[in-house]
Amino acid sequence: MGSDGFGSKGTGPREKEGTRPETRLGTPWNVVVHDDPVTLMVYVTRVFMTIFGYSPSRAYRLMMEVHTKGRSVVWTGPRERAEVYLSKLHAYHLLATLERAGE
């Protein structure tokens, strides 16, 4: 499979990238993952690690937020990159949406 394959190295941006000029120029977008009653928690955690390159603890924390609160903002940044992440999340059949940050 491609770079979104399980076990491949994550390509997630480092947190400090939120201050990059390209981010300041446009409205940042949130990648939101929503809870569903079927998808396994361990699967969601693994998808977050694979797609965003998050550590197991961070991925687990976000998964638990999805599970307990019904949704979690798993990444925020420029729209173009947010769409790439959204596409990868949909490829794993997670319920994910994009929304403008601050809405």
């Binding site: 499979m1 979104d4 399980f6 009653p37 059949h93």
Partner: peptide, 20 residues
């Protein structure tokens, strides 16, 4: 094969969701 495991995990999840 290792390179096919993402397809399997995603496919299994998709099939479970489809049945649901």
């Amino acid at each position: 094969p290792q390179g096919h495991q993402a397809a399997w995990l995603s496919g299994l999840n998709g099939a479970r969701l489809a049945l649901y």
